[in-house]
Amino acid sequence: MKGLFKSKPKTPTELVRATRELLVYVDLHWNSHEPKRAEKMAELSKLIRELKLILYGSSESEPVAEACAQLTSEFFKENTNTLRLLINCLPKLDLEAKKDATQVVANLQRQQVHSRLIASDYLEANKDLMDTLITGYDHVDLALHYGHMLRECIRHQSIARYVLESEHMKEFFRYIQLDHFDISSDALATFKELLTRHKSTVAEYLLKNYDWFFADFNSKLLQSSSYFTRRQAVKLLGDILLDRSNSATMMKYVTSKDNLMILMNLLRENSRGIKLEAFQVFKLFVANQNKPPEIIGILVTNKDKLLRLFQDFKPDKEDEQFDADKAQVVNEIKALEPKKAAPS
């Protein structure tokens, strides 16, 4: 008859409440020598694991929509600040609980309650949480967890805008060059997401911040001493400039002599990876129908070198689009004439 007295499994709502109570406890009692602390931490880890199982299901069962919705509404219930508590307590959790908590936060960003993304409403009112997540990149033990949460949060357009307009954008140029590859590549993935996901916001942002942004992009990334940074940066630059919604920024970029020179240096690198990506941007300078005289001047001066470079220049795989682009660039350069000196 033992089964009769087994405690009923907690509902999703009760699970969130229990988690919250423990988070508050951990938050308050962190520095005290509370004898029960280890026990409470173990309990907290277990609860976070259970939240994850509800949201993701297990190898035996699929997640249930109703349970997910209950969990989400309790999690973001007014005046409870569960997300803030969880983010703040993350450094205190062990590795497994950190991973589980990260997956929970990531998943909650996509959960709808009455067809609303209520996570977005919460973040809207608590934007400073983004500051915490971003500065995680400076902490080896937190970077990947906070980084993953951050990428999920900037799925919401207003949150992405907040990050774009913050001072943190300048810091990203440093984060993506940190020594640890797993961290720097995570920062780069976030940076890329910020600059490509929400088209209208990005277009507006780039125009408004054109001067400092591209000055930093050129000097810190495209001219970095790290091969990996240069390669990733030139790829990202191509993605940004070739996006139709950024055409105004693109037109501005391709009229600058300094930009052209940087791209031509990348074209001359030994790395095929960098060369091919640099070509994607270089072709825009050539295709511009209103080339300023100084751009024409540089292209004409380097005409022979460029044509020689393009002779045996192609990607590993057959690529019709690339061949067509290259043919057009070659023709365009061949047709360029130096400005004739006026007859005296």
Binding site: F181, A189, F228, K235, G273, D316
Partner: peptide
């Protein structure tokens, strides 16, 4: 050798992470 990993740098990031 990153030159040989064409454009699957995202895949490499996930693996390493």
């Amino acid at each position: 050798d990153l030159e040989k990993c064409n454009n699957d740098l995202d895949g490499i990031r996930r693996e390493v992470q």
